[in-house]
Amino acid sequence: MNKTISIEINGKSSSFSVAPDEMLLDLLRRSGYRGAKVGCREGFCGACTVLLDGRPVNSCLIFAARADGRKITTIEGLGDPNNLHPIQDAFLKAGAVQCGYCIPGAVLSTKALLDRVPDPDEAVIKRALDGNLCRCTGYKKQIEAVKLAARKLKGKKK
């Protein structure tokens, strides 16, 4: 039996009719939020990462119905190509993007981190990115990107 739920996605509330076994990832993708990617559907790779009430989750493992009444941020809720979010700008400047398939997830994990810890050290950054597998970059430039983003965001607040 389908159920009607309401989710606030990137600041906008909408209602969706979902099947009880539909995953949040599939709901998001079919609703046009295609920045969340399918890498394993098993909770291991983080390509499907979105923020649920500000916390990074693997949307492939969460039933869509569980998001009822909650807030989701997807990569589409950050910047767009003509107006990048500082974290996205930092990822590009640091050379942290290769194929880009892991990037929406890594950017969102970074956002969740920097919202909580504006000035993380390297160990904290590594822990925050640990759930976002990337086979292309070797992580070094992604870690540098997070540091750069932290500096940018701090500069902005001042």
Partner: peptide, 10 residues
């Protein structure tokens, strides 16, 4: 292709 990739639009 960076801006499209980093914003999830690619």
């Amino acid at each position: 292709d960076g801006p499209a990739l980093v914003t999830g639009r690619a």
